[in-house]
Design a protein around this nucleic acid. Sequence first.
DNA 1: CTTATTCGTTATGACTCGTATCTATCGTGC
DNA 2: GCACGATAGATACGAGTCATAACGAATAAG
Lengths: 157, 157
Amino acid sequence: MSVREDTDTAKTVTDAALRPFLGFNLRRAWNVIHADLTATLEPHDLRMITFSALAVIGDNPGLSQAQLATALSVERPNLVPVTDELASRGLVTRERVPSDRRTYALRLTASGASLLARATTAVHDHESALYADLGEADRATLIAAFRRIESTGTGRS
Amino acid sequence: MSVREDTDTAKTVTDAALRPFLGFNLRRAWNVIHADLTATLEPHDLRMITFSALAVIGDNPGLSQAQLATALSVERPNLVPVTDELASRGLVTRERVPSDRRTYALRLTASGASLLARATTAVHDHESALYADLGEADRATLIAAFRRIESTGTGRS
DNA sequence: CTTATTCGTTATGACTCGTATCTATCGTGC
DNA sequence: GCACGATAGATACGAGTCATAACGAATAAG
């Protein structure tokens, strides 16, 4: 079948076969953004999951851990060490709810809100740098596309 | 401080604080695509890494494992079990190179090429379904944006 | 021959995430 | 009051991914 190609010593190894796939490109972009995000949050002693949790708690004071897990798309067990850490660092409070003593009501403390504000600013600035080459319109297109992919894939609203 | 909000029993837990961040949306989209891709490749007994490896080998016959690792952005040690599996399944050959007996020259076998073709079709079809809501222009915008994010983040080419 | 470098490989550990399971609590029906 | 199923939080365990360190074999340079 004339499989004999002299591509052997080729110095150029191409991605060409994978580039047409959006999923592949998305993975590469995600790797970059993930690395940048991790580095951005590291000075604040936050990981992506703890930062996300802080943000959702800040937006939904008094929510339960189960609600938080749903909002973050993680399983409940994986949230336990997160809330443990946030609580032990004094960033969130876990108040017992009188009406249902099984659940905790999660709220930001003052220092939690302050840290969230600082980290949010840092993340926003880093994202702006990463997307400097992208126009505002492209950025909006991206987010809209992501949400559509999300809903197409999961079927949820 | 009038912290007393009745958001406690709120049934609606919002993502609002995170949605403006592109990274967050990208992660969600990636989760969806990753799940779909995994399910798509599973009937072919392929994982993302093995499929990607097949595709790159098919496009660059005779390349070394080190070159493959670079093309796939994974560390060399993590590629060993991949090439082992592909070789033991008879999908790729590892021929010794006379000029440099340290390296292996990786090539697809006939069945490897056949499997790659079938899997590529499957992945392409699934991607088309996922991106059905996206126009062709949006898809091109997405890929272009990804590549720009990639190069901005890594500084490479 | 000696030294440094590269390839493929092994071993190891960090990190993420999901499933199964347990206890405590709530709600419902008897 | 008491049994039943369901839910919240927590624990334990395992699968999967990924990077680092280090080793033998082979190559290249001195």
